[in-house]
Computed example of a mutant assay.
Amino acid sequence: MFSELDDYLSLEFLPDYWYDVGTGVASAMLICFDNVAWDALVEQCVSRPAAWQVRCAEIMDLVPHPAAEKICVKLMSTDSDDVVVAGADSLRSIPGAHFPEGAAGRLGAISADGSPPVSAVLAEMLARFSEQ
């Protein structure tokens, strides 16, 4: 099951297609995951290209599973600002999730260098997680 999702997330997508169709297809794949597939996703998510990681992060909040929080946290430890932001965005939508230690500093740095819309979104995320 993991290999199907892995292959799918590796495809090239137009942004509109990914958000209109691709996320639904990918989340339907996640619904079929067993524990072995989830374990493979947790283990291998950080070894994939940044575009794959962003897509992976963007679907983590669509299917409730305990591994989703773990995957977002792992993705937030990568070098890519885009992956970190996508991981944080999904993490804030997972009920009961907590930001990992050090995430606020990293997101604050990304916010300081980001565009006004990115900075506004990150400020909201940081405010939510500072309340925990």
Rank of each mutant, 00 (worst) to 15 (best):
S93D: 13
A51V: 07
L91V: 01
V73A: 09
A51G: 00
E12W: 14
S119P: 01
F99C: 05
V83C: 08
V46M: 14
D81C: 00
S3E: 07
C56D: 12
V73P: 01
V42F: 03
L91W: 03
S90E: 05
C32S: 10
A57Q: 07
G24C: 11
D81G: 00
W38R: 09
V42K: 12
C56S: 11
E58H: 02
S27G: 10
D89Y: 00
F33I: 01
I94V: 00
M1P: 07
L122F: 02
D89P: 01
V84Q: 12
M1S: 10
C72N: 08
E131Q: 03
M60I: 07
P66T: 04
C32K: 06
V21K: 07
L62G: 04
L62Q: 05
R128N: 08
G102W: 01
G105S: 06
V73G: 02
T78I: 12
A109C: 07
V36S: 15
A127W: 03
I110W: 06
Y19V: 09
D34W: 02
L41G: 12
L75H: 12
V54Q: 02
L75R: 05
R128Y: 15
F13M: 12
Y17F: 10
S10T: 14
A50R: 06
C32N: 02
L122K: 02
P66E: 14
E4F: 06
D113H: 05
D113W: 05
I110T: 04
D7P: 00
S3K: 12
Q53S: 12
S3F: 14
H98Q: 13
V54L: 11
A86Q: 08
A104R: 13
A51R: 03
M76S: 03
S10F: 15
M76G: 13
